[in-house]
Measured scan of single mutants.
Amino acid sequence: TDCSIVSFLARLGCSSCLDYFTTQGLTTIYQIEHYSMDDLASLKIPEQFRHAIWKGILDHRQLHEF
């Protein structure tokens, strides 16, 4: 599957948040998979999107835990 942040955000309906990640040089889900809610806040992601992205990260982690 596509591991880009572009497609990750698109699946979550949060494509408008892409610039918050790319300006930090973040391009793949693996770069953010251990981010906390505070990390997302420090990227200045608007609160209404933060929870959806956080949930997406948690779902991603569960899929990749062996």
Rank of each mutant, 00 (worst) to 15 (best):
F8T: 02
I32W: 01
S16C: 15
F49M: 13
R50M: 14
S42A: 13
A52H: 08
I32N: 01
E47N: 13
M37N: 05
H64S: 15
D38K: 11
A10R: 08
D59G: 12
A10K: 07
L12N: 06
I5Y: 00
T27D: 09
Y20V: 06
D2C: 04
S15P: 07
L26A: 03
R11G: 08
I29F: 15
T27M: 06
H60L: 13
I57C: 06
Y35K: 05
R50F: 05
H60S: 08
F21Y: 01
T1W: 10
S4A: 03
I5P: 00
H60V: 14
C17Y: 03
T23W: 06
D59V: 11
L63H: 15
A52R: 14
K55N: 11
K44N: 12
W54T: 06
Q62P: 05
L26M: 06
T22R: 10
L43T: 03
A52G: 07
T1Y: 08
S36W: 02
H60W: 13
Q62W: 05
L43E: 02
D19R: 13
L58G: 14
K55G: 09
Y30R: 15
L18G: 07
Y20S: 09
D39C: 05
Q24K: 13
G25V: 01
D2M: 05
I5A: 00
L43R: 03
F66G: 04
E65M: 07
L63G: 13
L40Q: 01
G13S: 08
L58F: 11
Q31G: 03
L18F: 04
K55S: 09
S15W: 04
F8Y: 03
W54Q: 05
L63I: 11
C17E: 03
C14G: 03
F8H: 03
F66S: 13
A10T: 05
H60T: 12
T23F: 06
V6M: 13
F66R: 13
L9R: 01
L58V: 14
T28E: 12
Y20I: 14
D19M: 07
H60I: 10
C17Q: 05
A52M: 06
F66D: 05
I5Q: 00
L9F: 02
S36I: 04
L40G: 00
G13V: 01
T23K: 14
T27I: 08
Y35N: 03
K55T: 07
Q31E: 11
L12H: 06
V6R: 13
R61A: 11
L9A: 00
R50L: 11
T23P: 07
C14H: 05
E47M: 10
L12M: 10
Q24I: 08
L26G: 00
Y35F: 13
H60Y: 13
I29T: 10
D38Y: 09
Q31W: 01
H64C: 09
R61K: 15
T28N: 07
E47T: 11
L9T: 00
Q24M: 08
D2Y: 04
A10Y: 04
I29Q: 03
D39P: 01
R61T: 09
V6H: 09
F8K: 00
S4F: 05
P46L: 00
S42R: 15
I57Q: 02
S4V: 02
I5S: 01
Y20E: 05
L18Y: 10
L63A: 15
L58E: 13
Q31C: 05
H64M: 14
D39Q: 11
P46E: 05
M37S: 07
R50N: 04
T22H: 10
H64Y: 07
T1K: 05
D2T: 04
F8D: 00
D59R: 07
D19S: 15
G25L: 02
T23E: 13
Q48T: 12
H64L: 10
D39H: 04
T27F: 09
F21K: 00
S4E: 08
D19K: 12
S15N: 11
F21M: 02
S16Q: 09
H60M: 13
I45K: 01
H51D: 12
T23R: 12
L18W: 04
L18D: 07
L18V: 13
S36N: 15
L12D: 01
R61S: 11
C3W: 07
D19P: 15
A41F: 06
H60G: 07
F21L: 02
A52W: 08
I45T: 02
K55R: 09
T28W: 10
C17N: 03
Y35G: 02
S42V: 13
Q31I: 01
S16G: 12
I29E: 03
D39A: 06
S16P: 14
R50H: 11
I53F: 00
I45C: 03
L63C: 14
I53N: 01
G13I: 01
C14P: 01
H51F: 09
E47Q: 14
K44C: 09
